[in-house]
Amino acid sequence: MTHPVVPIKTYAAVFGALLALTITTVAVSKLELGEFNFVAAMTIAVIKGTLVVMFFMDVRRATSLTKLIVGAGLFWMAILFVFVLSDYASRGWLPGPRWF
């Protein structure tokens, strides 16, 4: 409507990248990397999610207001995880009675 039509080649390339990353995430999960298995899995998932949001959902060409809403959503997700983890990760750091 407002944007030029994206060539099929671009969509096919994103599709190919997403499939390759899916195979990568299964392959990496079979390696013994300790803590880095989780880091690798989440890094791959974030890359895949970013590809879908930017190309398939066309946020790269969206208005600034739409980008702001997407960013705000992700920021609120970050608040959720940072506050939950700062609570559970820090329990037991201080001496004193345990009430949980």
């Binding site: 969206a62 208005t63 739409t66 809403i69 959503g73 609120w76 939950v84």
Partner: peptide
Amino acid sequence: QSSTLGMWVFLVTELMFFGGMFGGYTVYRN
């Protein structure tokens, strides 16, 4: 653009909805 913005506001509420469950997962996996 208005339709897209409205749809994204809805999708952000969906993100919050699934975020709660991902948060629960995070706590118990830890």
